[in-house]
Design a protein around this nucleic acid. Structure first.
Length: 260
DNA sequence: ATGCCGTTTCGTAAACGA
């Protein structure tokens, strides 16, 4: 069972690129972030034609997440629990029945948080605190859980080509990394690090200043696995070549393989 | 570097992203 996460930076602008990758990689489950589309205007048809069931949590213009699955989708959770006043569309979760039992997968788009001296950073940290509480709740079930998405967190210096240029950025500031570590230390496994300990592995290259050509990237798209999911992990890869395609997103897909 | 580039919006400049 292959599960992917990919910040596509706008489904309308990225439709052909998304379809091309899904045809190539054919993951069983694919989590999208930044669909930048309302639910009603999400182009589900072309994805359904590839055999996917589609669930979205969209909003106009910004944010928006989706889960696509070749398996029937059950038990959908729309919105990160814990704050009914939060109207930003950044979280959707679905469950799937497999031969190994129920697998829960979340597609999350954690707030960017820049600039750090504003309420945007306060919102990011509060969102991370809320994710921590919800993740702790999920672990109580002792089931396979995959928290996949664009975390907007550079976990360590090894996850950036030029870590010094991110020192004062909301993606790398100590409070951000402390919260990410706290989440992982609940008992989650960073799938990429479980599969490959090398530095220089990135999932995002800015459109600006020739970042892609210079390989000036950062690793901010992660799949965190509950102990039961980590036991099923057989591999994790980043499809870096997609960044070199026509009309690319600034992020590329990250894919895990589970024995499920 | 308040810069670079790309997407979106009751657009034609501004907001947002990372």
């Amino acid at each position: 069972m292959d599960i992917a996460t990919w910040n596509i930076n706008g489904v309308k602008a990225r439709l052909e690129t998304c379809l091309a990758w899904l045809k190539e990689a054919s993951p069983d489950v694919c989590c999208f972030q930044e669909i930048k589309s309302e639910d009603a205007s999400f182009p589900s048809g072309p994805f359904e034609d590839l055999g996917y069931n589609v669930r979205t949590h969209g909003q106009k213009g910004f944010n928006g997440v989706a889960i696509l699955s070749k398996h029937p989708i059950e038990d959908v959770v729309v919105g990160l629990p814990g704050d009914n006043d939060d109207i930003q569309a950044r979280f959707i979760q679905a469950s799937f029945s497999t031969d190994s039992g129920t697998v829960r997968v979340a597609s999350l788009y954690l707030p960017n948080g820049n600039p750090p001296d504003t309420g945007k950073y306060d919102y990011k940290l509060a969102w991370m605190d809320r994710l921590y509480d919800y993740a702790a709740h999920l672990l109580k079930n002792e089931e396979p859980v995959v928290l996949a998405g664009d975390y907007n967190v550079i976990p360590a210096a090894a996850d950036a080509k030029r870590p010094d240029s991110w020192r004062n950025d909301a993606l790398f500031l100590p409070p951000t990394r402390e919260r990410f570590r706290k989440l992982v230390n609940l008992g989650f496994t960073d799938a990429l690090r479980a599969a490959d300990a090398a530095s220089g592995i990135y999932s995002f290259w800015d459109y600006q200043a020739g970042a892609w050509q210079k390989d000036n990237g950062i690793r901010i798209d992660h799949l965190l696995l509950s102990p039961q999911a980590a036991d099923m992990l057989s591999g994790c890869r980043i499809d870096k070549h997609v960044r070199g395609w026509e009309k690319p997103s600034d992020h590329v897909p990250v894919v895990i393989s589970l024995n499920a």
